[in-house]
Design a protein around this nucleic acid. Structure first.
Lengths: 147, 147
DNA sequence: ATATATAAAGACCCTTATATCTTTTTATAT
DNA sequence: ATATAAAAAGATATAAGGGTCTTTATATAT
């Protein structure tokens, strides 16, 4: 459903938020270890995220990644959009170029229901709501968290 | 959501079914033209489909593709499964290896709802139900159909 | 000032999905 | 039998996603 890069991005952002709440500003290698992603590749992903202002960074000793205090909520949709575009929320499930309600593909309505469900999910959930759940013990970030 | 190959496959199978109902057995180039896919690539896809018995073929003059009379219904799920596996119906939306109800990722339940919706859709729809809709004018296969 | 820790940037590589081309096999028409 | 029409098979090409490595820029600690 989501690309591997997007998955890494979401997991990383949730971890960064959790650490920020603890007053910590994690760096690339710490995050990569936690989310079980390749270090160098993670660095690339974080570059993309900071370039698009979803995330802030500081270079140099004691540097790392953190969220802008003003930007209180970052939706999963925004993360997907930056990582792989929003095509999945527009595209016909059949791959037809001009499929719409007047010219519907054979599973137009059924597919739209699924697609909208996914859209609502990622539009309503944010890195902060996700992180809160983890903090409250309602969810886990990875298999190591429980051990 | 679905790979391009899977999209081509579904569209092709629907077209083949429609032609079969008319007593016609279409060949690679005819199908490829209709579904707006590359001819040689389409041929590869049809090889995969016939190898997995989702489709029958006949070589030689007057040959082409057709459905086994005994196999009256072919679900979209089966097509997806042959073309790209069923991973999308099992995978965690977060990319976690062991995410489950006892160890849920932060959007476990919400995502599962979407995923199951998609699963039910592709498990209930078949190439035949899709084709029927097209035949009845309730849906169109591509943009050329309406012109 | 210098050394050190860190992210940014850019070049590169590997794998998979997408796509093409050529040759071989098989059926039919004549 | 021979020519022809078609799919099967296999080799190759291209593009994108995923991943690595090296160098550069920048902040902090000493």
């Amino acid at each position: 459903m989501l690309s591997k890069s997007t998955e890494y991005a979401i997991r990383a952002l949730a971890y960064i938020q959790l650490q920020n709440w603890k007053g910590h500003r994690p760096g690339v290698s710490e995050i990569a270890l936690e989310i079980e992603a390749p270090v160098a590749y993670s660095a690339k992903i974080f570059q993309t995220l900071t370039k698009h202002k979803l995330l802030e960074s500081m270079k140099g000793r004691g540097g790392g990644f953190f969220f802008d205090k003003n930007q209180s909520h970052l939706t999963i949709f925004d993360v997907i959009n930056v990582m792989e575009g929003d095509g999945v929320f527009h595209k016909c499930g059949f791959g037809l170029k001009n499929c719409n309600s007047k010219n519907p593909c054979p599973f137009h309505n059924e597919y739209i229901t699924v697609r909208e469900g996914f859209y609502n999910l990622v539009k309503n959930e944010t890195i902060q709501t996700l992180s809160k759940k983890i903090q409250n013990g309602e969810a886990v970030l990875n298999r190591l968290s429980k051990e």
